[in-house]
Design a protein around this nucleic acid. Sequence first.
DNA 1: TTCTATTTTCTAACACTGTTCGACAAAATC
DNA 2: GATTTTGTCGAACAGTGTTAGAAAATAGAA
Lengths: 204, 204
Amino acid sequence: MGIKQRREREKQEVRQGILTAAREIARQEGWQSVTIRKVAERIEYSPPTIYEYFESKEDILVELLREGFRQMAAALKAVWKVTEDPEQRLLNMAEAYWNFAMSNPELYQVMNGLGGVSFDCLEKPPAARESFVTTQEALVGWAQARGVDIPDIEGAVEIIRSLVHGLISLSMVDRIHGGEPRAKELIHRAMCDMFAAWSTRQEE
Amino acid sequence: MGIKQRREREKQEVRQGILTAAREIARQEGWQSVTIRKVAERIEYSPPTIYEYFESKEDILVELLREGFRQMAAALKAVWKVTEDPEQRLLNMAEAYWNFAMSNPELYQVMNGLGGVSFDCLEKPPAARESFVTTQEALVGWAQARGVDIPDIEGAVEIIRSLVHGLISLSMVDRIHGGEPRAKELIHRAMCDMFAAWSTRQEE
DNA sequence: TTCTATTTTCTAACACTGTTCGACAAAATC
DNA sequence: GATTTTGTCGAACAGTGTTAGAAAATAGAA
């Protein structure tokens, strides 16, 4: 009776193959040239077969979006235990965010509607909220260690995220003078600036 | 001999009509559904006629990109004279940047590769550099008035720009908790945080 | 094994996209 | 009025996402 399970396993493999193929093409040639027919050719099936595994092309992108947010959340959690210093931890998280985007640009693009990708309905997967919460916890830890009070912590997290995302997305369209090494340096500097600002808050 | 000039004027009007039509469709239905045939129908010409005025569809987008950067640069310069206070001036510029993006989302998208737009070659028009320089001059003025030294001013400008752009682009895909009013508020707060950080630089 | 029944896969097509070619008409020049 | 230049369009090409129905492969029962 294990024949049914084998079949199920094979189906999952084909499904994963579609996702992988789409990612590879996007990475090599950009999302613009990710085509159902090209994906089909790469997995050695005919185009209609893809619709047995995904409702539409957009469905493939949505699945990769979820995958991206899962990996991102995992990457942020992974650097948590690297250090005990709350400030260094936040710096590491910003760097991890950057590293993820630069190592998986095709995922980052599909996650944030960059690189010619666009959804009718940009959904926010649970993992996205996870990343946010992880960052927030790190920031709370920092504030406690520093003995400062950050009113509206959620806002502070959004500011950090916007800053890093802004540098990444501008870097991706080559709009940062000095290229990627410079952008990475600027993230570090901006984070330190924010630390400085929030440390002196009680004096305002 | 004014007949040739009239003809030239009419051609410019048709050309402008194409640009306007593309913009309007993008604003109403998104760049995804901007189609040569739809643009043609709106200006009451046949599709091939468009190619008498633009080499390709991408050429239309590039022209709108340039137009966008020109308007942006003008908007930044326009708020320069609103106040003499250097800090308020920078706040006004950040708000003007935000206002421009929210008033002309279709232009902002085409300027930064958002909303499903993507170019083979993202060019940086002269007006883009202009905006950068204007912001830089405002920041230099602020530093002088405050009596602080900002090493690597260009980097500081890129940080400001990334922050504002990050908030805008996340806001456009509805990823800022609290929506647009909240995002606008966060820009103001982040700017003030940056002022605080750079004011206390000499103490580090 | 052989014969249904079911599931999986593909061929062919549809409506749409950006773009081009060659014919046609209008206008300008002589 | 005849001719050349200019402007415009119908039809078509190759490519896109997607679907319907036929063909093939596999499953279970005789």
